[in-house]
């Protein structure tokens, strides 16, 4: 029985705002690890999170958190949340905010531990309104973990952060996931999903159009990219075997192929002037582009 209880479970969830269908028959089960929900703006990511938290009521379908309704106290005790537009009161200090939120939970993390994990050291006693954008975001992150949650929803957690802060937040999230927590983050930074996620769920126009590990998705796309430098025309490149498409920028060439070995051999044989050869797997951005086209 225990195995049937998922950290998060949505069954056939549908949500429309007037004419616009935000979520169209979405079913999703999450358990341990980091899942990234990836999609363009308006794909339904935030609506899915808001439904998960009970902020929106789905028109149809069921949502549960550890088998309990999202709005129940039992569920809320186990959920941590960082909203996209969750700004905090200007006239309180990070330490006070963390202490206030700790009082809401029956089994909170130690305040000192939260300060350390969210890296609030150095500004925990400054008024929130005087903090930088990155510091504010870290305080919001602190409030999401203070309750010692088993499932963490992070809605666009690193939007507007510089890359250093972003990376430090990533490592904290990875640490939390390693300790057995479920993390669900939405992002439109593909780099973020690629760096963090064990599993990627691609949402487009309210529907889940792909679901798997980053590696699986790349394999499914089944192409490799050959980069090189040569003075060749588009026609000459497309004439090579197994080439799917190509891009030219002066002498810098990018060839997409379904079989890199075959294409590469032919390229070298036919055009010995080619230099700077490299083969790479597509990144998530390529996968994403291919999926949402």
């Amino acid at each position: 029985m225990q195995n049937d209880v998922f950290a998060f479970r949505a069954d056939n969830v549908r949500k429309a705002f007037g004419q616009k269908i935000a979520l169209d028959d979405v079913s999703l089960k999450l358990s341990e690890g980091i899942t990234a929900i990836l999609g363009k703006n308006g794909a339904g990511k935030s609506t899915l999170i808001r439904c998960a938290l009970g902020l929106e009521r789905p028109d149809k379908g069921q949502i549960s958190i550890f088998g309990k309704p999202s709005k129940s106290r039992a569920a809320r005790e186990r959920v941590g949340i960082m909203l996209q537009d969750g700004d905090l009161p200007d006239l309180l200090k990070p330490l006070e905010l963390v202490e206030l939120f700790a009082s809401h939970y029956s089994n909170p993390m130690l305040v000192a531990e939260v300060i350390e994990k969210a890296q609030l050291q150095g500004f925990e006693n400054k008024l929130y309104k005087n903090l930088s954008g990155g510091q504010k975001r870290r305080v919001q992150f602190a409030l999401s973990i203070v309750g010692n949650p088993d499932i963490l929803f992070l809605d666009e957690p690193t939007t507007g952060l510089d890359s250093e802060v972003r990376r430090s937040l990533w490592s904290t999230v990875q640490e939390l996931a390693k300790s057995g927590k479920t993390v669900c983050l939405t992002t439109h930074y593909l780099e973020e999903a690629e760096a963090l996620a064990d599993r990627v769920v691609v949402l487009d126009a309210g529907q889940i159009i792909d679901d798997g590990s980053v590696l699986e998705m790349k394999k499914r796309l089944g192409i490799s990219i050959i980069q090189c430098s040569a003075n060749l025309s588009k026609g000459e490149l497309l004439a090579l075997p197994k080439v799917v498409s190509c891009k030219l920028e002066g002498t810098a060439l990018e060839i997409r192929t379904s079989d890199p070995d075959v294409t590469m051999k032919a390229l070298i044989a036919q055009h010995p002037t080619v230099v700077d050869l490299s083969i790479s797997r597509p990144n998530l951005e390529d996968v994403f582009e291919a999926l949402t086209q």
Partner: peptide, 16 residues
């Protein structure tokens, strides 16, 4: 002000 900046929403989600 708290409603506009989402603070109220954050409180509604917490078990308080």
């Amino acid at each position: 002000a708290e409603r506009e900046r989402g603070w109220l929403q954050l409180k509604q989600i917490s078990p308080t």
